[in-house]
Nucleic acid binder design. Structure first.
Length: 882
RNA sequence: GGGAGCAUAGCUCAGCUGGUUCAGAGCAGCUGCCUUACAAGCAGCGGGUCCGCGGUUCGAAUCCGUGUGCUCCCA
């Protein structure tokens, strides 16, 4: 097979994607094997994959491919999420822009038709990206959170929880998004630090005098229903039973007393606006205050405000401040730092608002979810970094507002008769029955369904179950086989939204955790450390990156710069490193291809057998290491280890060691051994870089149908651990290290003596152990470009001297040389060793060290001492001859 | 205001249970090479008070306290 000059990622990606798909390698069916199940965190159907997704999907694919190659029946379920607010907003926008249609003019059914069309169009974009990245998902199992069975599951769960008394309807202070005109959960509000103003406003008292309050929101004064002061505050002790008048509208409101008010803050007098502030709301409940809601759903002032009706809240603030000032009510406005809540979905300032919504009681569900993690039943990675966050949230959880004033989503299965009596049932007929049970007789046509839909997270919390129909058909075989899933990979930012709630749902419906391990990845940031976001426009386009560098390089780049759980600064130079790595492996494959052409049955050179043994041992060593790293989810470290094994040990050392000399043939047996090693290497790397490894695997040998790398099973690790546990293995690794040190040292010596690479030398070795050179002598001579290698017992005059460990080397050249540099180097080394020896001797001279430290540590120090003494002796002798 | 985390080479970070694989990697830098797999490369080199201070210990980048500076989460 002829190999092209460079690896061509695009061709390989298309070819192997099709091949794997045609072979149905990634389609899973329950069988006798142990399952390894992963459900993808469903991306929003509106979006495109950003770098955060790329990191997530790559991590999942690595785990899934590794499991598939390790005897597991791997099943990775892809899908997407209907993202109710975000999608509805986009569809509304599209309809207005492209078709001039307003949502208000459409029926619910008509709107949903457009929404589904949108979903079909944009859902495909995400799936295409997942495929281009090389993700080994089971495409037969694609699930969407609005699929029919999924919809039914959500409704079923709602009804069930309602019947258990965990879901209730009530008027509460909620977060209102005036742009999307819907309620939000607490988790959907993002707080930002802003520079605001604190306005000091004068309220006249009914019986003369005045009271000054401080507020950040003067546009809400028309909703005031009391002024509150601290009962301990001497300034206001005389105000018992007093009434004040709200400026501009002259509403009469009582002065109330509560220790809630901090006398030191502002003026010590608080205006109470129960409809527009959560604390005021609670105060209002306590003191039985009237609630005056002065805002409309869209954020403009309502009739109840009496003035500026229909004006936007922020514009109204300016106008009211101006009027207050003009009429002498405004005393001053001072700068003030505060935090303001913004809607995560639409970005507008969230308005606290009293509203009748559906809630899910969380306390009962939180406990089993917390225990599942605290008991170790679910393991959170990395380490316990996020355990504290998880715990804190669950211990302080508040009821979950699950209704949204939208159309795109599962419509709440609650029904009302003309009197506003409410029942919960799956359908209209069921509702009539439910009314009948309450003793209310009503016609089907007279029943109206609740107009609202459920929060998207109220559907995605069922994800690990319902992708296998685990809610709709809890007894089905697939669900029993695949659930609980093995590992969930997601971002730390949705620990509450999603992870904790999935655990709740799993514990509630299966009395079992939804996943064994949770792996939290960090945030992807740009080079300047900013979070990647659409608004900043600093997130690169995934498909463009794949086109430019290849999917393998993208995967490599994002993994190599991704320490477990920490944020990573995304930099294209990491992708370049990945592309270069591709190139390196490709060239190694080309070299082997060349060897194949000139391979004969000649006996292998004497160094080859040793080189094979050495590399085989290194390979086993790395296999064991990688296995341990992966078990700890240290994927980045594992990749670095494999990278260095391939680039340094295999390409830079091993291939050079077995490379035939000038015009010499390649021995067939050596070549076959080398090919086997390369196969093992691409196998090890395959989970990280699937395309190039599969390509090289097939380039190395003709493969039978069905012999593909993605299904090649890893050898048992136990066997390798055992193989490493013997002296021969340890010895060959030590020899390899020695050889590398000597080669580097001699090359350095050559460089410092300014010898040209092509210039040959005669090498003389003065060693206490000449036997250790038997196997590596040939390799050594080639690697340092020595025409001859001989042993000597004494110094060679007029040569370059190098001392490496206890070994002394002399490089003899044609021309006489300058030895000043070497002497300096040796003196420097001598000085270091003497200092080192002194520190070791000091330690050993310390009575307490010898008696307290572990025996093996003391023993090691003794060896260090001897070692250093030996080296010093060798250097001193060398210096004496110079 | 409450909680969590981070600070190591010019940059981005490893460094698990204190002790020669303790001061590491990758980029960047410098020197020399277009050596018949690879210049997207090869060979070699330099570079750090492990944030400051105190403590525990025979021994601290590592454990504890504290100060400073950043980051995130929550109210």
């Amino acid at each position: 097979m002829e190999l092209s000059k460079n690896f061509n990622p695009a061709t390989a990606e298309v070819h192997w994607t099709q091949h794997w798909r045609a072979k149905r390698y990634f389609n899973s069916k329950p069988d006798h094997r142990q399952p390894f199940t992963v459900v993808i965190p469903p991306p929003n159907v509106t979006g495109v994959l950003h770098m955060g997704h790329t990191l997530n999907e790559t991590v999942q694919d690595i785990l899934v491919r590794k499991a598939r190659m390790s005897g597991f029946n791997a099943c990775w379920v892809p899908g997407s999420d209907h993202a109710s607010i975000a999608t509805e907003a986009k569809v509304v926008q599209m309809l207005e822009k492209e078709k001039g249609i307003h949502k208000a003019d459409l029926s619910r059914e008509e709107f949903l038709k457009y929404a589904f069309e949108w979903k079909d169009k944009y859902g495909g974009i995400i799936y295409n990206q997942i495929e281009r990245l090389g993700c080994s998902v089971d495409w037969d199992r694609v699930t969407f959170t609005m699929d029919d069975h999924y919809y039914k599951a959500v409704i079923k769960v709602f009804i069930d929880l309602y019947e258990k008394g965990l879901i209730y309807r009530g008027a509460r202070m909620i977060n209102w998004d005036p742009s999307a005109k819907t309620a939000l959960s607490d988790e959907e509000v993002e707080y930002k630090e802003v520079q605001g103003k604190l306005y000091h406003i004068r309220y006249p008292l009914e019986n003369g005098g005045e009271l000054v309050i401080a507020t950040q929101r003067p546009e809400t004064i028309m909703g005031d229903t009391a002024i509150c002061v601290n009962p301990e505050d001497p300034r206001y002790a005389n105000l018992q039973g007093a009434y004040a008048l709200v400026p501009l509208i002259n509403r009469r409101i009582p002065v109330i007393f509560d220790t809630y008010v901090d006398p030191a803050f502002g003026t010590g007098a608080l205006k109470v606006t129960p409809a527009h502030d959560i604390n005021d709301y609670n105060l209002g409940l306590k003191h039985n205050l009237e609630v005056v809601d002065t805002l409309n759903d869209d954020g403009t002032l309502s009739e109840a405000a009496q003035i500026y009706i229909g004006t936007d809240r922020f514009k109204a603030r300016k106008l009211i401040v101006a009027e207050l000032e003009e009429k002498g009510f405004l005393i001053k406005a001072e700068d003030y730092h505060t935090r303001v809540g913004y809607s995560q979905r639409t970005g507008v300032v969230v308005e606290p608002k009293i509203s009748t919504q559906w809630f899910l009681k969380m306390r009962e569900m939180a406990e089993p979810a917390l225990n599942a993690v605290l008991s170790g039943d679910i393991r959170i990675h990395p380490g316990d970094k996020f355990l504290a966050t998880y715990r804190y949230w669950l211990e302080n959880v508040k009821d979950w507002c699950i209704s949204r004033q939208l159309w795109w989503g599962q419509q709440i299965p609650a029904w009302y008769n003309s009197d506003g009596v409410c029942v919960v049932a799956a359908d209209r007929a069921g509702a009539v029955k439910a009314f009948a049970e309450k003793g209310i007789s009503v016609e089907e046509s007279a029943v109206t369904q609740d107009a609202d839909v459920l929060d998207t997270w109220f559907s995605s919390w069922l994800w690990p179950m319902e992708v296998f129909n685990g809610i709709t058909e809890p007894d089905n075989e697939e669900f029993k086989y695949y659930y609980p899933t093995s590992v969930l990979v997601t971002g730390q930012d949705i620990i509450f939204f999603w992870v904790a709630r999935m655990v709740m749902a799993g514990m509630e419906y299966q009395q079992e955790r939804p996943f064994r391990d949770v792996y939290f990845t960090g945030m992807v940031r740009d080079k300047q450390g900013r979070k990647m976001s659409k608004s900043l426009g600093n997130s690169p386009d995934l498909l463009e990156l794949i086109d430019k560098y290849g999917a393998d390089a993208v995967r490599f780049g994002i993994m190599i710069s991704s320490p477990a759980g920490n944020d990573l600064l995304f930099d294209e130079s990491a992708l370049e490193q990945g592309r270069n790595f591709n190139n390196k492996m490709w060239n190694a494959a080309k070299l082997i291809q060349l060897w194949k052409e000139k391979a004969t049955d000649v006996a292998a050179p004497s160094g080859d057998a040793w080189a094979h043994r050495w590399f085989e041992t290194r390979l086993m060593e790395v296999r064991v290491e990688v296995e341990q790293l992966l078990a700890q989810f240290r994927l980045s470290e594992a990749l670095k280890t494999i990278y260095s094994l391939i680039w340094d040990d295999f390409c830079s050392w091993y291939l050079e060691w077995i490379k035939p000399g000038f015009g010499e043939p390649m021995s067939n047996s050596s070549l076959q051994q080398c090919i086997r090693f390369f196969e093992s290497l691409v196998q090890l790397l395959h989970p990280y870089m699937p395309f190039i490894t599969e390509e090289i695997y097939h380039a190395l040998s003709e493969r039978k149908d069905g012999d593909d790398l993605c299904m090649l099973q890893f050898p048992s690790v136990e066997v390798q651990v055992a193989a490493l546990e013997n002296n021969a293995a340890r010895a060959v690794l030590a020899e390899g290290q020695l050889l590398k040190n000597i080669i580097s040292g001699l090359r350095d010596a050559r460089n410092k003596a300014q010898l040209k690479p092509k210039e040959t030398v005669s090498l003389f070795i003065d060693s206490p152990d000449r036997d250790q050179y038997t196997a590596i002598r040939v390799i050594l001579s080639r690697q340092v470009n020595a025409a001859s290698v001989e042993f000597t017992g004494e110094a060679i005059a007029q040569s370059i001297t190098a001392v490496i460990g206890k070994e002394r080397f002399y490089l003899q050249t044609e021309q006489p040389l300058e030895t000043g540099n070497q002497k300096e180097d040796l003196l420097k080394e001598l000085e270091y060793l003497k200092g080192f020896l002194a520190s070791v001797e000091k330690k050993l001279g310390n009575e307490r060290f010898v008696s307290n430290a572990k025996p093996e540590i003391v023993e090691m120090e003794r060896r260090k001492q001897q070692d250093a003494e030996g080296k010093i002796k060798v250097i001193e002798e060398s210096l004496a001859t110079m």
